[in-house]
Design a protein around this nucleic acid. Structure first.
Lengths: 91, 91
DNA sequence: ACTTTGGTTCACAAATAGGTTAACTTTGTC
DNA sequence: GACAAAGTTAACCTATTTGTGAACCAAAGT
């Protein structure tokens, strides 16, 4: 079980809603989970992050919970606002 | 000079149009260059790739040349159609 | 010179991501 | 319980990506 899976188990325990939504499809949630994990690691609230990105906390929440897809630029700026870097590899 | 840069030099030599467009901004072209490189490596034409993705060759060309941004799902399926895997890391 | 193949670009339509507001829930603290 | 802070969701709107067809160019082969 890797870190992401551990995190998912933890989050399922914390949020019944998440657990239910999660079953609808792993793939579509994977990126949101990754992003939430990154944000929590840094210890920033959705509101704080939203301000750095000149957007609203609701948009952040949507990305972390709902978003079926995301633009590469959004992904990048989200992470950069957390002081992280996005790395893309092709295998 | 890494592989990507080498490839860019090569492509600048082949296409004046590309060379000119490229100067307008590196960042926005980077992903397209990566994708073209991946496709050429496999030896697939834009038309062949388009068919696998149920789209048209013009859409492929746009992604490789013009596209300012791209959805994660598009990136993923493009690469998977080439038999490659997209790997995302956060640093 | 003509045709074919691979690629580029444009214009328009369709689909979808992201901005925004407002109402709501959850969680923690007093 | 009351309150505040953090997060969620829905609705609407706008901006952007992607689908599509057509016209075009360059290179290669006939």
């Amino acid at each position: 079980m890797d870190d992401l899976e551990k995190y998912i188990v933890k989050r399922k325990g914390k949020s019944k809603k998440f657990a239910k939504n999660f079953e609808k499809g792993y793939e579509s949630f994977k990126i949101g989970i990754l992003l939430r994990q990154a944000r929590e690691e840094v210890g920033v609230t959705q509101k704080e992050l939203a301000e750095k990105l000149s957007t609203k906390k609701s948009a952040i929440s949507r990305i972390e919970n709902h978003a079926e897809d995301i633009r590469l630029s959004t992904l990048k700026s989200y992470l950069e606002a957390l002081g992280k870097k996005l790395q893309i590899n092709i295998q």
